Simulated scan of single mutants.
Amino acid sequence: MNLTKAENTIVFQHNHLIRTQMKMGQTEARVFVEALRCIHQSNDELPPIRIHVDAILHGERGGSAYANLKQACRDLFDKELNLEPVEGGNKKGSFILTRIVSDISLDTGTGYVTGNFAPLIKPYLLQLTKAGNFTSADIETLLTLKTPNAQRFYWLLKSYQYGKHEYEPTLESLKYILFNDEFIYPVFADFKRYVLEPIMKEFTSKEVGFMVVWNPIKTGRKVTSIHFEIPKADTLVARQLSLGLNPEIKPPTNTVVPTSKDASSTDKAATILNSLRKKWDFASWQLAIVKNAIGADEVKYTKLRDTMSAVNADWDKLENPPAVLWARLKKEFTQVKKACDAYDKA
């Protein structure tokens, strides 16, 4: 599948990139989102960046608008990142220093921002649905957020949307991630008033619907941490993304998977499929793929059960257990991989 930039409605980042310290202004964040829109996860290489200014300025014109855009491009270019390596087996303390973009330019004549992603940023932006440990976000939702740092905060909290659905950073570490400065807003009341409350108001609005609940944690009389309860990603698109599937691909409509109510209590396959549906958030058409792969084969059933048990044993250690399970099923069952490949080529 070769989607054009205009068809991309969902963007992706590796969680290592999301969770690194990175202050980003509102216009700069818009440039970044539109740059991410250029990427499709089936690409082999990062594409060039090409964004019409209307996608960033939304009708704003004049010298001040272009001056803000010019500064945002400069800020994005100057952004130096200290990232944890993506590849496993790296020793503790290993890091990669890179930028997001290697070059970026603004042509006021053509009305386009163009540029290229930095080479070392590739594993943090591309083919993430295969690698795992990623977070996705709806572009329309991201562009709805107006409060400074709201986009960065939204990405950060969403990266903890699987597993325990909670995040409890120290106040200093949170300020460092958002502002590159742990000493900013030394009085918590100011941080609450100027950062937390405006952003949370946007998150819980009807337009965004990200119903985060937060509570300050005190050591003595001083707030030292904040506990965030993050809503579970329970929409169809979120389930597809968590399973490493392409959300633009529509599932077949003629597949029906029986639930435990429809199946015999002695039907092992129905029992295990019901577990995949309820605990692992597999959608019905993903269940159909698994059902067809297992059939009535006792050996395959045992293999599936053992694979699920192995992933479940590490549930609390994994960033995204459903994605890990799905990746293992594609590796263990040829028919599952073939079905997914067929969807990708559709």
Results as ranks from 00 to 15, higher is better:
188 F>H: 05
192 K>H: 09
156 L>Q: 02
232 K>M: 11
213 V>M: 10
197 E>A: 10
191 F>Q: 06
219 T>V: 12
157 L>P: 04
201 K>D: 08
198 P>G: 02
208 V>K: 05
214 W>Q: 03
155 W>F: 05
223 V>W: 08
184 I>N: 00
191 F>Y: 14
155 W>T: 00
160 Y>I: 04
188 F>S: 00
191 F>R: 05
180 N>W: 00
194 Y>C: 08
198 P>R: 04
185 Y>V: 03
211 M>E: 12
227 H>W: 13
224 T>P: 01
197 E>V: 12
220 G>R: 06
201 K>C: 06
161 Q>D: 10
204 T>G: 10
196 L>Y: 04
215 N>Y: 09
163 G>T: 12
232 K>I: 12
180 N>T: 03
203 F>C: 01
166 E>R: 14
220 G>K: 08
195 V>E: 02
218 K>P: 08
196 L>T: 04
231 P>S: 13
178 L>V: 07
158 K>A: 13
166 E>G: 13
206 K>R: 13
160 Y>M: 09
225 S>K: 15
165 H>L: 13
217 I>L: 13
215 N>G: 04
172 E>N: 06
189 A>T: 12
232 K>L: 11
163 G>I: 14
155 W>N: 01
224 T>V: 02
183 F>L: 11
213 V>I: 13
222 K>T: 15
163 G>D: 10
192 K>L: 09
197 E>N: 14
209 G>I: 02
213 V>W: 01
174 L>A: 04
177 I>V: 15
193 R>T: 13
190 D>G: 02
182 E>S: 15
180 N>F: 00
203 F>Y: 07
201 K>R: 13
158 K>W: 08
212 V>T: 13
158 K>M: 14
184 I>D: 00
193 R>S: 14
207 E>D: 15
183 F>G: 03
161 Q>G: 15
209 G>Q: 04
159 S>A: 14
230 I>E: 06
216 P>A: 06
201 K>G: 07
225 S>E: 08
167 Y>P: 00
155 W>H: 03
167 Y>T: 01
214 W>R: 01
156 L>V: 02
151 Q>N: 12
213 V>S: 12
211 M>R: 11
193 R>I: 05
151 Q>V: 15
161 Q>I: 05
221 R>D: 14
194 Y>M: 10
168 E>A: 13
217 I>T: 07
169 P>C: 12
224 T>S: 07
157 L>W: 05
210 F>Q: 10
212 V>A: 11
207 E>W: 01
177 I>H: 06
198 P>Q: 04
184 I>V: 14
176 Y>A: 09
163 G>M: 12
190 D>V: 12
207 E>L: 13
219 T>C: 10
184 I>S: 03
191 F>T: 02
178 L>R: 01
204 T>R: 15
185 Y>E: 02
165 H>N: 15
190 D>T: 15
225 S>M: 08
205 S>K: 12
201 K>T: 14
186 P>E: 04
192 K>Y: 09
158 K>T: 09
207 E>V: 05
157 L>A: 06
227 H>M: 09
222 K>A: 08
228 F>W: 06
229 E>K: 12
226 I>K: 07
205 S>M: 11
192 K>I: 00
168 E>S: 15
166 E>T: 15
151 Q>W: 04
